[in-house]
Amino acid sequence: MTNVRTMRTQEEIRRSSRASAKRSWMVSLVIKLSFMFALIFLAVNARIIYNQKAEQINREIARTKSKIHQLNREIANLKVRKEQLSSWPYISSRINMFKLGLRPADSKQIRKIVLLDVDGHSGAMNGTAELYRENRTAGTD
């Protein structure tokens, strides 16, 4: 029996529909597989990128840690050096070496005390402030 409109036999029609069903199944499988592979690819890539970033940060951390360690060592060294330089035996040895002739403070050295207000100007004693503009806290003999 032949279909008058398409001029195809029943057998042909059946074969064609079977083939198209097979094709559509194949396509959907390929699509599914591609999607799956794409997902896997994405996941693996994401993981690689993430790992790379983590390693990069890790290296950065290690570098910073080492820098901090170096700075700490430098600070410790400077701290000890500062203590060494600010100790009285060292200062007195320098005074002697350069013959600075420093003497201990004596209250009688002070000739006039100028009191400063909050802004650093002498408040009550304007005249004195003018007189002792250079040495604002105390004049010495």
Binding site: A76, N77, E83
Partner: peptide
């Protein structure tokens, strides 16, 4: 707090 004994690198 003045250092008397310390550790120097």
């Amino acid at each position: 707090g003045n250092l008397l004994v310390g550790n120097i690198p």
